[in-house]
């Protein structure tokens, strides 16, 4: 569980996050949505510790991240899995080596144990016989799966995904979304996803947090989002002709 309390963040005097308070629960897929510039990326970076908030609290399972010592933060960071936009695999490493990378950085496992863990993670994302291929030799969807396998390699308690299905065709995007959702429940992780994609929202949004101009404007489930009368959220959700047609 991640509890966010009154987080504010400014850049050169310009407020980007204003008193954001919310709760991301364990075993659920939590989505942060919003227009470009709404502050969702900054919020995500504050959550993973890449940015420090100006004020407020971020509690990881009731532990205040901002008040932790360096050593304690490192322990928490070991429990964070990260899935970057585009996959961000290392082109010079094979699929297997990419998945092993965070294990090399954080764990004391033997090489054999690391290989076992990498194989387990790759099988879990339904990838077989690709261990020795390079990222350039696999499809975009497979790259995303490898990235997910790498994100869960350290058996994290918290999984952060930045636009996980950007650049994928709608069908593959849904497969990836479902995979993230399944893994979240299976490993009982707290998953936070930063996305623009309404398909993702409607597929896996156990909880949806809508940011508008740095403020938490609305939160609820994917079912509640269709019934809200929040104007800014509706403008965002029904921005496309397709969604407007579907609503009618």
């Amino acid at each position: 569980m991640i509890k966010v309390e009154n987080i504010t963040k400014s850049f050169e005097g310009v407020p980007v996050l204003k008193e954001v308070t919310t709760l991301f629960e364990r075993g659920k897929t939590n989505l942060i949505i919003g227009q470009s510039g709404s502050g969702k990326t900054v919020l995500m970076k504050c959550l993973v510790g890449l940015l420090e908030s100006d004020s407020g609290k971020i509690m990881f399972d009731n532990l205040d991240f901002n008040k932790m010592s360096f050593a304690d933060r490192r322990i928490i960071r070991k429990q964070l899995g990260m899935l970057f936009q585009g996959g961000a695999l290392f082109d010079s490493l094979t699929v297997e080596e990419n998945v092993i990378f965070p294990l090399n950085m954080f764990s004391d496992l033997s090489q054999e144990e690391k290989l076992d863990r990498a194989n387990f993670c790759l099988q879990r994302v339904n990838l077989d016989n690709v261990n020795h291929l390079y990222p350039s030799e696999i499809s975009g969807g497979m790259k995303k799966r490898v990235a997910i396998a790498r994100a869960i390699a350290n058996n994290p308690s918290f999984l952060f995904c930045d636009e996980p299905n950007s650049g994928l065709d709608p069908r593959t995007a849904i497969v990836i979304d479902k995979l993230i959702s399944e893994i979240t429940q299976e490993f009982n992780m707290t998953t936070v996803i930063n996305t623009h994609d309404m398909n993702s929202v409607m597929e896996i949004g156990d909880k949806v947090a809508f940011l508008y101009k740095g403020e938490l404007w609305w939160e609820g489930t994917r079912f509640e989002i269709l019934d809200t009368d929040n104007k800014e959220l509706n403008d965002f959700v029904y921005a496309s002709e397709l969604m407007r047609t579907l609503k009618k």
Partner: peptide
């Protein structure tokens, strides 16, 4: 730069 960032985000230390 991006690889460095990802490495750091995945746990790589400064000396790495």
């Amino acid at each position: 730069t991006s690889i460095i960032g990802i490495q750091k985000a995945l746990g790589a230390k400064k000396y790495f």
